[in-house]
Design a protein around this nucleic acid. Structure first.
Lengths: 110, 110
DNA sequence: ATTTAGTACCTTGCAAGACATAGTACTAAA
DNA sequence: TTTAGTACTATGTCTTGCAAGGTACTAAAT
């Protein structure tokens, strides 16, 4: 009935894009690596979420990728920020801080 | 192509529930009033979003409502938190702070 | 008395997106 | 030549935000 997990998942939505672009701004990475990094900070994302999202970001020109051989499995698709992506990320940073501010104002009011 | 508005909207998703429950924890309110309060803190929500959400929260037992006459228009549906809603809100508070922490960790890493 | 404006609540249909599930393919070790 | 591990992809479902349109009540203006 009351499903807290569901809402937590909802809260994660929307900030995923921000987090993924942030991770890529720290250096190129392939999907599995991105998932690992997100997990480190308790933001669990699964493949079925990440792959379509990366494709979307690539199609809108925010990301690019290159194939790179691996010596322990199939080749990896390394994603990187484009120049547009860099600019966009700065905007998202702002939006994020604005959101945090707005929510905190709302939930701390007494 | 690159649509920042869309992502901002995405970021708002999920925290709406938290904000609405928070507002109601400060006192009973009717939908139009809730929208006003959210607008004050820059969280713009429209009717088509709010009404179904309130109904959902009521159906899961987090909210209740009572009708109250108005002297300037039709009667108002005042929503209030149930006991379950109170408990649930505390959980959401925690989840929110965890999320903020996780995202901040991710986006400030260099 | 009828119209108009303001307030308030409700419903329908669409689109976006997260995720579960299942599948393909490559490598290396057993 | 299996088996396990890694990696990428595709499909279908479900939730949910929102635009758009609608109903209904009150009070002031015509």
């Amino acid at each position: 009935m009351v499903n807290s997990e569901n809402t937590k998942a909802q809260m994660r939505k929307g900030v995923l894009e921000l987090c993924i672009l942030s991770i890529l701004s720290q250096g190129d990475a392939y999907p599995t690596e991105i998932i690992e990094k997100l997990k480190e900070t308790k933001l669990v994302v699964v493949e079925g979420t990440l792959y379509p999202l990366l494709t979307r970001l690539k199609n809108t020109g925010l990301l690019n990728y290159r194939w790179e051989e691996s010596n322990s499995g199939p080749p990896r698709k390394y994603y990187m920020l484009t120049e547009i992506g860099e600019t966009y990320l700065k905007e998202l940073h702002l939006s994020w801080y604005e959101l945090v501010d707005a929510v905190n104002k709302t939930i701390t009011k007494k």
